[in-house]
Design a binder for these strands. Structure first.
Length: 273
DNA sequence: AAAAAGCTCAACCGCTTTCTA
DNA sequence: TTAGAAAGCGGTTGAGCTTTT
């Protein structure tokens, strides 16, 4: 399969993006939408390769990106999903709305892999110490950069990116369409489709267990094996939905508090005058 | 105060997968 | 069916920042 040369092209900018480039890219995508990354830079007036543009947009400029520290709940979810999916960062990111695969990958490599390693060697030790580099920062333990980013984009509650899940078997049988059903479900040929909130997504996913199932043949307890794992995933997702609910509640509470504070302030001001 | 060590994360690289003619 | 183009993914790198000595 051919692969066109990309960033190696002479004359293209590389390295960190400037504010001007960000603006150009954002404006172009707002006007014309995502996609056609190859031709986008030229049309947008950018001296970047399409790949670079896509990455910048996906990992940084997209409006729905959630910035700031990974919450303990999110961390927990990442760990669970990683144990389930392995290094399938984009899949994991798909379950953490507003988080990018790159961010999760970085977080895993810098924090969680060590943490889990430590837990492996010292079971009873639970690393509660805050990140060292945050000790000099503000109260919330965020870096300046993260704080700036947080200010830019208020935390939003997002619905998870819907994904379609399929096994290796499906690739062979090629009978996806006729076997899909609504809801997270499993059909006989190993297809699992995740249809969240009635939206059927576009991503096709291999689950680590699908190959196992294939190896052992589907007749022998395939459905029960699959449904057990599927249930696990479903439970996990249920937990996550609850997490989202909680976050939403917290947000509402925060907003209420802020409102109260404003009222108090204006009341205090009126007394002062 | 300065140098060294450690850490983070944006960006790049190269590969695979998917799409399309 | 095939091959090229496009998109997507995971691993890796390195600049810049923080912490430690």
């Amino acid at each position: 399969m051919g692969r066109a040369p990309c960033c190696s092209k002479v004359g293209l900018h590389r390295g960190p993006w400037t504010a001007r480039e960000d603006t150009l890219l954002t404006k172009y995508i707002q006007a014309h939408g995502e996609g056609h990354w190859r031709s986008l830079p030229k049309k947008a007036g950018l001296l970047r390769c399409g790949k670079s543009c896509r990455l910048r947009w996906m990992n940084y400029l997209r409006p729905d990106i959630k910035r700031g520290n990974i919450s303990p709940d999110e961390e927990d979810l990442i760990i669970r999903l990683h144990s389930l999916l392995g290094n399938r960062w984009s899949l994991i990111a798909g379950r953490l709305p507003g988080r990018t695969d790159n961010e999760i990958k970085n977080y895993w490599n810098t924090h969680l892999s060590k943490k889990i390693k430590n837990q492996g060697t010292h079971h009873e030790k639970k690393s509660k110490e805050p990140r060292k580099r945050n000790s000099k920062n503000n109260n919330n333990g965020t870096t300046k950069k993260q704080e700036q980013n947080r200010a830019k984009t208020e935390t939003k509650i997002h619905l998870p990116k819907p994904i379609r899940v399929t096994s290796l078997l499906m690739k062979r049988s090629n009978s996806f369409e006729s076997n899909t059903v609504s809801g997270t479900s499993c059909s006989q040929n190993g297809i699992v489709e995740d249809d969240i909130n009635g939206v059927v997504g576009k991503e096709i996913v291999d689950f680590p267990w699908s190959s196992d199932l294939n190896d052992h043949g589907c007749e022998l307890g395939c459905e029960s094996q699959l449904s057990t794992r599927e249930n696990l995933f479903e439970r996990l997702y249920e937990e996550y939905l609850q997490l989202l609910k909680k976050e939403e509640q917290k947000k509402e509470e925060r907003e209420e508090e802020e409102e109260d504070q404003v009222k108090l302030d204006s009341f205090a001001e009126s007394l002062w005058v």
